[in-house]
């Protein structure tokens, strides 16, 4: 691996609330090349906030601090808003959890993809339209022309999610952040969406950050996994070595899932050690 695409060192996200300060992310460091990195954790572990902070999408009153947060040599912390705007959606894009809430309900899917493309590339409308149709085809829409003219409420969850992936990939980004892209979908549909995502990422040589609560899914999909607990990375490991995880939290998370293969009763539960959160 040559120069990493994304370098994150000691990332902290903090929310000053009326009830006190919440440290959502406390000193996360990692490097990402053109690979698939999974970030796993339970609710409140700071996994989504890590993904959002990279894009500068931390909602107010959150504040982001880091020793280093650079994307392809550009310092994201000191970059002007203008630079950030060209990066966001252009070279770094993000797929959100639920297509129902993240697509514009009053614009057709085609229009939204064209808008996303024209915001970053100086092309004519006709070209953008062709590109949008090609993208819809790339995400395996059966009838791209028809889907192009549909509104988000007229498509199923799986189709909506594929439309969103099409929109996010239309600008050929170098880095894609996927925040629970399949949690709102049925199992069989989510496999289909993952397969499309997998193909496109491999084809275009993108970096991918896959944020999810599903350890099993992430380990079968990504190359490397970061396990987060209470705002910190407790363990970093190769996905294929997940079985040899050392940290009791990772092991606990893996064991507490019921599986079809084994009938364990009662299920082992997780005894949270306060020392993990230190």
């Amino acid at each position: 691996m040559t120069k990493p695409l994304l370098e994150v060192e000691d990332l902290r996200v903090r929310f000053h609330l009326r009830t006190g300060t919440v440290d959502a992310v406390r000193g996360v460091s990692f490097q990402l090349g053109r690979e698939r990195l999974g970030i796993v954790g339970e609710s409140g572990s700071g996994k989504s906030q890590t993904g959002r902070a990279i894009l500068g999408l931390t909602p107010p009153p959150g504040e982001v601090a880091a020793k280093k947060l650079s994307f392809d040599g550009i310092d994201l912390l000191t970059a002007s808003k203008r630079t950030l705007r060209t990066l966001r959606g252009g070279r770094i894009s993000m797929v959100m959890q639920d297509p129902k809430y993240s697509l514009n309900p009053v614009m057709t899917i085609g229009e939204q993809i064209i808008e996303a493309y024209q915001a970053h590339a100086k092309v004519s409308r006709a070209e953008a339209r062709d590109k949008a149709l090609a993208m819809l085809e790339a995400v395996k829409m059966r009838d791209p022309g028809r889907v192009f003219a549909l509104y988000p409420h007229e498509v199923s969850g799986g189709m909506g999610q594929r439309a969103m992936i099409a929109m996010m990939l239309v600008t050929d980004p170098d880095l894609l952040i996927a925040d629970e892209p399949t949690s709102a979908l049925d199992v069989t549909v989510s496999m289909e969406v993952l397969r499309i995502l997998d193909e496109l990422v491999a084809e275009r040589g993108m970096g991918l950050i896959f944020v999810s609560h599903d350890l099993k899914l992430v380990s079968s999909f990504c190359d490397r996994v970061l396990v987060m607990y209470a705002g910190r990375v407790v363990e970093e490991l190769e996905a294929k070595h997940l079985r040899e995880a050392q940290h009791p939290y990772t092991r606990g998370l893996m064991n507490c899932l019921p599986t079809l293969a084994a009938d364990v009763r009662p299920l082992p539960t997780l005894n949270r050690d306060p020392a993990w959160a230190l």
Binding site: E42, S43, H213, D214, L215, G252, L253, C256, L257, P258, R265, P266, L267, P268, T269, L270
Partner: peptide, 14 residues
């Protein structure tokens, strides 16, 4: 969450 799911499933079973 997965770890909480295990607790609730055990409770229901019991």
């Amino acid at each position: 969450d997965a770890s909480v799911q295990a607790e609730v499933l055990n409770l229901l079973d019991e």
